[in-house]
Each structure stands twice: as C-alpha cells, then as structure tokens.
C-alpha cells in the first residue's frame, strides 16, 4: 500500500503529525511493537528536519510484506556536505530552533540508527531527499 503526506516547512506546531498518521497505520498492520518504535523515531526525525530546514516537503510511503519504505522529499536549501551532516552533533539549526528542543545534530545519525538503510541525496539550493527502509522480518 502507498500513501503520502504534505509537510509544511517552518510550522513546528504541526511537526510530527504525518509521522503520527503513519504510526497509526503501522499499528493497524500489526507490525512488532519494537519495529514500530524504531520506525516512529526515524520518520519523526526526518519530518522535523523538513519542518526545521525546508520550505515544504512531502513524505511518501510504501509498505509491502517485506519492508516499510519512506521517502522524504523537500524543497529547501539542501545540504552542502552530506557526510558531515551524518555525524553526531553536527547542526546548522538556528538558536531559535534549538530553543524549541530541535536541532541538536542528532537527526540523521538517529535515523540511521533506527532504520535498516538510509539514503540521503541533496542539491544545494534545491532540496534534499531522504530515503528510509526498514525490513519487517529481520
């Protein structure tokens, strides 16, 4: 099955609402609780990344018997050095964003930790695509 949700940039009051919807879907599909927990953390991080950095984005998902695949595409500033962004603690978030409890530089590393595969591609000035795959039976 497939689904997609629009994510607005800059609106922190709604950050996490798309993830909550998908989490409901995963619960209804009866995925193992520990799996749901990991996917929930990964997609929430990815969603907040779009809210914090991009103008707008979309979360597209595809679930089959083997895996949960989530793609986060955004229109935004892009990431200059993807490898650097994958390091723990690296952050370009503004002070304002950090005060809200976001932007600690744990986003991408946390996604990697909670998924089976993470692919990040980015073009400076255009946007970023984050692809997360979690296998259901491993």
């Amino acid at each position: 099955m497939e689904f997609s949700y629009i994510i607005e940039g800059g609106d922190f009051s709604k950050a996490g609402s798309a993830s909550s919807e998908v989490k409901k879907i995963l619960k209804q599909l009866n995925l193992a609780p520990e799996k749901i927990k990991k996917i929930a953390v990964a997609m929430y991080e990815a969603e907040v990344n779009i809210v914090a950095h991009a103008y707008k984005g979309v979360m597209e998902g595809k679930i089959d018997a083997e895996k949960v695949f989530l793609r986060f595409r955004d229109e935004g500033p892009g990431i200059e050095d993807v490898d650097k962004a994958m390091q723990e603690g690296f952050s370009t978030a503004s002070e304002e964003v950090r005060q809200m409890g976001f932007g600690a530089g744990m986003g991408l590393p946390n996604i990697r930790k909670n998924s089976d595969s993470l692919k990040v591609s980015s073009e400076v000035g255009k946007g970023t695509t984050v692809e997360i795959t979690s296998y259901i039976n491993n």
């Binding site: 409901k24 619960k27 209804q28 599909l29 009866n30 995925l31 609780p33 018997a65 259901i136």
Partner: peptide, 12 residues
C-alpha cells in the same frame, strides 16, 4: 494491541 486490523499483515 487493539489497533491491529489482522494478525496477518497482508490481510491487514
């Protein structure tokens, strides 16, 4: 879980 639609994922 009360939320699961089916024990079998494909059926869900």
């Amino acid at each position: 879980s009360m939320m699961k639609l089916d024990d079998d994922m494909e059926a869900a």
